[in-house]
Write a protein that binds this DNA or RNA. Sequence first.
DNA 1: ATACGTGCAAAGTATTTGCAAACGG
DNA 2: CCGTTTGCAAATACTTTGCACGTAT
Lengths: 142, 142
Amino acid sequence: MEDWTTATLAALERDGRRRSAARTAVIELLGRQSCCVNAQEIFDALRHEGRRVGIASVYRTLEQLTRDGFVQRVDVGASTARYEPVHPGGEHHHHLVCADCGKVEAFADPELERALHKVEGDTGYSVAHDVVLRGVCDDCAT
Amino acid sequence: MEDWTTATLAALERDGRRRSAARTAVIELLGRQSCCVNAQEIFDALRHEGRRVGIASVYRTLEQLTRDGFVQRVDVGASTARYEPVHPGGEHHHHLVCADCGKVEAFADPELERALHKVEGDTGYSVAHDVVLRGVCDDCAT
DNA sequence: ATACGTGCAAAGTATTTGCAAACGG
DNA sequence: CCGTTTGCAAATACTTTGCACGTAT
């Protein structure tokens, strides 16, 4: 979804925010992810490609993007928070977490999604939702 | 569910663990909860009723109980982890979290549960699951 | 020019760990 | 008694904040 990056940068600009180096770097990196990442991973990846960003800026950017609804925070139970891009009306998935090694995988299920929407209608809660299933992954099952 | 307390204490005993004061206090308090609580809340409540427990013991007990499947850790996105008793085959609910004030409420939905079990069958993940819906609670909606 | 953003380092929180003393079986 | 468990305090892990300087607009 290269599109998310462009859309997000454009939305920020429209909002009067500046297209600064650190912010742009974080957004571009997020746009390349297929599933959730944490702040440290973003920081390390950016450093690895030679960008000089501070981890504080990573956290600040994530906080902003989360507040504005461009990314969703995913709490999979590890001590660290993870984040992933939100594709409005598009691809949408949930998470399988290995109880053993902590690995996080994505899954999607239309029927589950339908049940969720119904509950959201009933309760009035509908800003975001996340389903976390715990179990043992294939690697650890051996 | 006064029953959970008894069952859990018995299971620990059967497992060779000691029925120590701190551990028993934490388990009894958990058994009285209807929804999830965090370590600090447990600590404060126990202190309030005059029991001299250290917060480290609260964490240690929670970690043990979680590992053994007697309590489930619930990550609702706040910085602190919450925990609640697991009633095997019995009452089972998920959580609504207010995006504004952080309040956590419980909800249950049979259709959602059915969809979840189906996904668990498909994926092989089935140790535990938790659904978190975010939104604005009635109090904050005003 | 002039706000807005930044990197760094220091400060906060939540949780874990080391250890000698207390305790349960 | 002897190994488990404890409370405390120090250590750790993650995240936030204060601040002087950089930089987009």
